[in-house]
Amino acid sequence: MITLGIDTSFHYLTLVLFDEEHVLASVQKEAFKKQSELVLVEIEQLFISAGLTPTALEAIVVTDGPGSYTGLRIGLTIAKVLGSLAHIKIYTLSSLHVLAGIEKDIHVLLDARAKRAYYAHYQQGNVVEEEQILPIEQLAKHISFDDQLIGDGALIDRETFYPDYTEHFIQLKDKWILVEDIDALVPRYLKTNEAYQP
């Protein structure tokens, strides 16, 4: 199954074209606020370098949130358009989960602005603490100094670190959620759900 992984939820534009277990082509680049301009150019490039035509595409796995509202809409719109008109299967994956991959024990922290951050905790690809939005102050206490951390660590005086996560899309295959009603697919904005009480 020729599958395209798409993540436009945060700073990166990350695209992975793969076939069952093998990555055919991928790109992960810093593209904050440039994703809309670059995304189709990069997708086209991926297919060319893999020697595939666009119609070879059979499935898309896209991160549906949380993250930048504008960013999320980019990946989700591509998925909705192709899922509804080209009969391509659409799967979603959490944008925090894809960063974590199948790391043994990992905390993910991403800037949500207004002194808040998106946070989740995973072990070997499984959810330990659900993704949520929390005040940075609270997270600074919650995450201990020995905890392995991915993302905007600088927010809590740790190192900011992003892994190469292109392979994670394949590694987390059993976490993909098949989208049954493609028209109803929308980003999980998270903030509006009031996932946290101050």
């Binding site: 995304v39 189709l40 086209e44 719109t77 591509i78």
Partner: peptide, 11 residues
């Protein structure tokens, strides 16, 4: 994004 996706997919 919609138009670009379709233009790319259909060439």
């Amino acid at each position: 994004i919609t138009a670009k996706t379709l233009a790319w997919y259909t060439q």
